[in-house]
Amino acid sequence: MISLTLGGVTLVYLLAGLFFLGAGLWAAPRLQRLARALLWSGLAAHTGAILGRWLKSYYLAGQHHLPAGFAESLRLVILQVPLSNFYESLVFFSWCLPALALISFRRYVQGYLGALVATLACLLLAYASLGVDSSIKPLMPALKSNWLLIHVVTCFLGYGAFALAFGAALLHLWQTRGSRPVLSGRPTLDPLIYQATIIGFVFLTLGIITGAVWAESAWGRYWSWDPKETWSLITWLIYATLLHARLVKGWQGRRIAWLAVFGFLAVLFTYFGVSFLLPGLHSYLT
């Protein structure tokens, strides 16, 4: 049921992407509204699927070890949040993109950018559904912590915001190629790149901090140079560079866009590359 819903959501995102593309090509406001409504309904179903999986993994864990009393049930609810393996993280990552775009950057979600957001979410979800083991596995002891929820949510909201900045940066680079002046009447994407980067940076900082506090309480080391930690630091340094270039040097436009692209490559490596190529404390993700 849940995987069927997610399959449907993938198709809805694909359709929304196509409609956004059409709206961008022919400047059709009706298509635009339709695409936006599709993206919203896809997001709603996606949210439902995540909640459904949460419920399911709660019941599965409850069968194995029945919680006694309200406090234990609440703890089990928090622990069973569907964010504990690679499949679940991919599903949440693809949720973050349209959620952030529709909630925080409503006025930018139109035309080509809308198409990019919907397509990226569709691709991530398709990869999760087709290429990754989706079974619900019992939690290992190290993951049994209240920090799991907040750590993973902040990290992936950060990744989602960086992905948004990346999409906007690609589009900006495409629109300004050959240094043609930006077509008038369209909101310029430069502020979007910058604002999405700020949101991503704040969430990444929160993710690193919650991870450090968690590691301190689980292993007694807030930092152990685990590859995932180190790569998140590298990503943080690159985006810190972007923010300094913007705030101190006043960089804008294409140069900021290139930095956002570069930063997102580091995000991708932090997420996929480290999980598959470099073994470490986070290797349960694969």
Partner: peptide, 9 residues
């Protein structure tokens, strides 16, 4: 910042 990133890589 970039030197630290490179060393970490």
């Amino acid at each position: 910042l970039l030197a630290l990133a490179l060393v970490s890589v």
